[in-house]
Design a protein around this nucleic acid. Structure first.
Lengths: 112, 112
DNA sequence: TTCATATTTCGATGATACTAGAAATATGGA
DNA sequence: TCCATATTTCTAGTATCATCGAAATATGAA
């Protein structure tokens, strides 16, 4: 069983993972990439990050469960775990918005 | 005008503010307290934190705009800025969920 | 004024996090 | 087997963050 405290700890960890310029950029890029995901090299190119720095951030996001990793030949493909992100947004909505409609209308769907 | 980059930076700052055990606990307590807010001393008692440590965390949350401060006689009252929290959840929903219904049904309202 | 309460600011310390080059590992092709 | 590609792990240096006692500030009451 997962205790309430564990859930809060998990939320803290995941918030911390997103609370970084580069990791948030990586995550947003992977959201756009969808379930297919994107190879580490492609991400490094897109965001102009040194490979070792990117690897550090990818490991962080993976460790907290926000993204997944799979190998495809020589490449390692990273993809968003949408269920995990659902969980995080759900936690914030339930615990940090006090039933005050925290996912506003304007956020309803505005895909590019 | 507020640029897209600024909005992302603001999101990073606010995520970072919530990405700490004590600050998240403070924030959740203030959500429960509602618009009335709660005095620093009462928060310190409730969460069993040294005054100076709490003050540090309250300052952080205030700096990023997630809570507000007002004086009431000798007490400083802190309260959640629900609009700011709306904005953060909206940002996550719009940018980090890819239209994949990130505020799930189960989060619709389950007040204690 | 003087005192008590409420809270912050200061300061020093320890802990974590970020960065990025260099070396190591994994995979596939010639 | 040997080489190139893709990526990670190692390492060390720097920077940022958290903690909390002590001192300072603000407010109100006697």
């Amino acid at each position: 069983m997962v205790s309430k405290a564990d859930i809060a700890t998990e939320a803290v960890d995941r918030l911390g993972a997103l609370a970084n310029e580069h990791r948030l950029a990586v995550f947003r890029l992977l959201v756009q990439a969808g379930p297919e995901g994107q190879a580490a090299g492609a991400i490094a190119d897109a965001l102009d990050l040194p490979a070792s720095s990117l690897s550090f951030h990818l490991a962080h996001l993976t460790r907290v469960g926000l993204i997944t990793q799979r190998r495809e030949s020589r490449s390692l493909i990273y993809a968003v775990d949408f269920a995990a992100m659902n969980g995080l947004v759900g936690f914030l909505t339930e615990n940090c918005c006090g039933g005050r409609d925290c996912a506003p209308k304007s956020a309803k769907r505005s895909r590019a």
